[in-house]
Design a protein around this nucleic acid. Structure first.
Lengths: 206, 206
DNA sequence: GTCTATAGCGGGATAGAC
DNA sequence: GTCTATCCCGCTATAGAC
């Protein structure tokens, strides 16, 4: 029993250090030496528990992908009134990525560099299941005449674009604009509110 | 004279091969051996003309950054009526990246991995110069009562989000959705039109 | 399970012949 | 200017002692 806890603890230390490094520096620029140092372990331990660096990476990627998808689609099935749902959807996403803003770029970039290999590591949600409820609700609002008629998939892609892209830019904007992190966080906070209004105005029927 | 042409030709072959590889595989995963093979030259030639792989990369990055910025802000100073300007702005961007859709992700990712080094390689446009004319035009339309009052920087960031992010996703969507490239291009073409209407509806005053 | 030492490969860069 | 051969480093992975 004590042994099991010990093992889990070592694995967890390695995973935590690896995740931080992979997300910050990417697969190729993170070495097992880096991970060994950061986790207080050594190279042999990493290979003992995870067989190879690539295998450890796949474990990290899988978890990161799940985390991102969960955040991007949080509250999409909520029963709130549609406009409040949009507010909650966008705001929750913005707020949830204040702590690791590099997650989306990491997931997209690494996936794009190795799609065939990584596609097998992730469980894709059924889009009908994920978007189905929102689609029905949008159609109802269209019938009621409160919003314009819009293709649901284009709408979802647009909400995601307006949410994810500013977060991605937040990892480069401070350097580009010469801002400190706190200043950009304030900007993002204002932008979050702007985006919610922007989306609602775009679909609302006067 | 003939010598000059010869030199330029070799350099150009190396640059072309390097750009394609760097954009597709990234800095770290592209080797000078790859570049040598793809350009029909050899490693020694690359170091002879460009001193080092890193130096060659910086040259490529600089050009790619310029190209992206030019495309993202093409027509932003146009004299077209505002709604037509938005249409032209968005559509031109979508159309211009059909040929190298990996450019935005490449620029953002590599910059984010090495901001301090790469910031020195790029000329940043003066935002007042770039956005100033658009800002004035937007304010005029607000006064005329044709559009809502909106902060210009948030608006620009939103237009860019709606333009760039779908292109970034286009490099992973085919694998994720099981589509062939042509199918996704059709989807993007439809999305382009959706986005233009979306933006105009978002700011228009009824 | 943990560590040290090292095998073995692939990388960037360059010396030196032509 | 161009090429071949090679240096030397840093990487992943593992053998083997404890």
């Amino acid at each position: 029993m004590i042994k099991d806890i010990e093992i889990t603890d070592v694995q967890q230390k390695i995973i935590d250090a690896a995740r931080e490094l992979f997300i910050r520096k990417g697969l190729k620029e993170t070495t097992v030496r880096d991970i060994a140092n950061a986790s207080g372990k050594n190279i042999a331990m990493i290979n003992y528990y995870f067989r190879s660096k690539d295998n450890l990476f796949e474990t990290i990627f899988e978890g990161s992908f799940e985390k991102l998808i969960t955040r991007v689609f949080a509250h999409i099935d909520s029963d709130l009134p549609l406009f409040e749902l949009i507010d909650k959807w966008v705001c929750t996403y913005y707020d949830s990525l204040h702590d690791d803003p590099k997650l989306p770029l990491f997931v997209i970039y690494e996936f794009q560099k190795n799609p065939e290999r990584l596609i097998r590591k992730i469980r894709l949600k059924n889009p009908y299941q994920t978007f189905g409820k929102l689609a029905i609700r949008i159609n109802k609002e269209v019938e009621k005449g409160t919003i314009k008629e819009i293709p649901v998939s284009n709408f979802i892609l647009s909400v995601i674009s307006l949410s994810v892209f500013p977060i991605i830019l937040s990892t480069v904007a401070p350097t580009l604009l010469g801002l400190i992190d706190d200043q950009y966080k304030e900007l993002l906070d204002g932008h979050k509110k702007f985006v919610v209004d922007f989306i609602i105005n775009a679909i609302k029927k006067e």
